[in-house]
């Protein structure tokens, strides 16, 4: 990369993320000042500097023990949600009967209050990783089912008529037409889902766990160590952000190429 290209790139980044960074700095500065000046007591809202100190101080415990546990729960739950969600979404698309029978249950599953359900999961799965994974799946599979199902349904009638005149079977219609057409919607569901995974894992740990960032933050809350609590929340938020970006990168790799870019309107935006 030449120097001018580098500067150009830097400018572009600054233009994209500059406003966000500026606002972030302003908020953090104001926050720090509010706490330091004594307007807000530190045990209610700790100063950003003390959150960072808590993060550094407990880094071994946070990064070595609790973060990997939460990540494992979220990742396992996400993988199973993707399997379950795409499977169910595709099945519902292929069969009207299945759709009519199952879709109400999919929606009912989202109306159940997780907090109330969690003790049941603990009864079933004990304090193992599976009670948390169950909570993760229950929160995270929904956007994938809806993304898959809605995406597959968008398969334009004109296209499928044309492919049928070429003699396409139902399976061929699905693979050659509906799956590619469904990808943008599928990835939207995936991005929502991966963020829900972290939230689900945290809730699972809150309600019964012996490790993980959710468990840690609960314990710190009990000890009134708000700086440590906030540091765990900060890490959880960053974890969700990182997972989201990971999925967004995969999406870009799949949909950013050639014709897909035109379909999703990304090509036009890229030129700005």
């Amino acid at each position: 990369m030449t120097m001018t290209a580098f500067i150009h790139h830097l400018r572009k980044l600054l233009r994209s993320y500059g406003p966000f960074l500026l606002l972030l700095i302003m908020i953090v500065t104001l926050w720090e000042w509010l706490v330091r000046s004594g307007t807000v007591p530190a045990f209610i809202v700790p100063a950003p500097s003390s959150i960072m100190m808590a993060l550094i101080h407990n880094r071994g415990l946070l990064f070595g023990t609790h973060l990997p546990v939460t990540l494992a729960e979220a990742a396992l739950g996400f993988a199973l949600s993707v399997l379950l969600g795409t499977g169910l979404g595709t099945w519902m698309h292929m069969s009207r009967t299945v759709e009519r029978a199952v879709y109400p249950f999919v929606i009912i599953s989202q109306t159940l209050p997780l907090i109330a359900l969690s003790p049941i999961f603990i009864m079933w799965f004990g304090y193992s990783i599976w009670s948390k994974v169950a909570v993760v799946i229950l929160t995270a599979f929904f956007p994938i089912v809806v993304g898959t199902y809605d995406g597959l349904r968008t398969g334009g009638q004109a296209y499928s008529d044309l492919l049928r005149t070429m003699g396409a079977s139902r399976l061929q219609l699905l693979l050659k037409l509906q799956v590619p057409l469904a990808l943008p919607s599928f990835f939207s569901g995936l991005k929502l889902s991966v963020v829900y995974c972290v939230i689900g894992a945290t809730i699972g740990e809150w309600l019964g766990g012996s490790s993980g960032l959710g468990y840690y933050s609960r314990r710190m809350a009990g000890n009134l160590q708000s700086d440590a609590l906030f540091s765990a929340v900060l890490l959880l938020s960053l974890l969700g952000l990182a997972l989201f970006l990971g999925v967004a990168l995969i999406e870009k790799a799949v949909l950013g190429r050639g014709g897909f870019a035109a379909m999703t309107g990304r090509a036009r935006r890229k030129n700005i």
């Binding site: 004109a158 296209y159 044309l162 050659k176 037409l177 590619p180 050639g258 014709g259 897909f260 379909m263």
Partner: peptide
């Protein structure tokens, strides 16, 4: 058909 209906990803 009247519209070309070429698959945009191909």
């Amino acid at each position: 058909p009247q519209q070309d209906l070429l698959l945009p990803w191909r």
